[in-house]
Design a binder for these strands. Structure first.
Lengths: 138, 138
DNA sequence: ATCCTACATTGGACTAAGTCCAAGTCAAAC
DNA sequence: GTTTGACTTGGACTTAGTCCAATGTAGGAT
């Protein structure tokens, strides 16, 4: 979405070819890519883009709240462009595939004060785990 | 708990000094240690124990279901010896500290079939994020 | 249109956390 | 006490990511 590019420009981003390409890649089919997958797709559009820039740009998008970082395990982090619609994740324990899901209920409300230990709780993240159709079929 | 040692023996574990030490370390004050912290404490009791063995043993304990692996981010995994009492986690976004928490409600029931995409869902993991008293105070 | 400069990009070296493996050791079944 | 297959070891290797000094450039000022 060029909305994204607009928003970024509005926030004072200097608009470089590299940043545009990374934003376009994330905007494509909405999947949960690793930084390396983003880099691979970016290279296809702009061969000289470096890994460091992809990491930088993804990091900036995350701090701006435009993209969500999902680290479900010790494998590579994945990036979720669907940051403006609240949701949770369903991940395949075997192959690492991720889907966005929308459970009912409000887990934040389910944590009583007595269970907060003085923390300032700002966010919940619910991760469902299981096997995707492909992996459970085999 | 020497219950742990009992259970492991019962499951056909060959009981070596190294494994005993790792089990003892986990059994100590119940905190969420990284593999390196476990190794450090283990070395104090058995100086010649190697990192590889600590990793192996932790991995085995996890597959046996005696210990829970918690990977909240791309930092080191943490190991939670409280595997037999179901619970979730509250983690400090700044320093990485973890506490066990017991929210009310049942998130597994909150994921409708239409949101399962053919996955065989076996587990939910709820992670509350925020700042611990120390980190929010400073 | 051109200049200027602060912000961006680059690639290569570096790091943290973990995995792998061939050789050596040892718990426990006999 | 032997035997033997499971366990341990340390060092090399991998993966995912961070850091940095040198270089390039977007976009405001002129």
């Amino acid at each position: 979405m060029s909305d994204l590019l607009e928003r970024l420009r509005g926030r004072g981003w200097r608009m470089t070819a590299q940043r545009r390409v990374v934003a376009e890649v994330l905007d494509g089919e909405h999947v949960h890519m690793t930084a390396d997958e983003v880099h691979a797709r970016a290279v296809a559009k702009l061969p000289e883009i470096s890994r460091a820039t992809v990491y930088n740009t993804l990091g900036e998008l995350v701090t701006l709240g435009e993209v969500l970082e999902v680290s479900t395990d010790r494998r590579a982090k994945r990036y979720d462009p669907n940051a403006h619609r609240p949701h949770h994740h369903l991940v395949c324990a075997r192959c690492g595939a991720i889907r966005d899901v929308h459970p009912t209920g409000n887990p934040l409300a389910d944590l009583p004060d007595t269970e907060r230990f003085g923390f300032t709780v700002s966010d919940v993240e619910v991760t469902y785990r299981g096997l995707c159709p492909e992996c459970s079929g085999a």
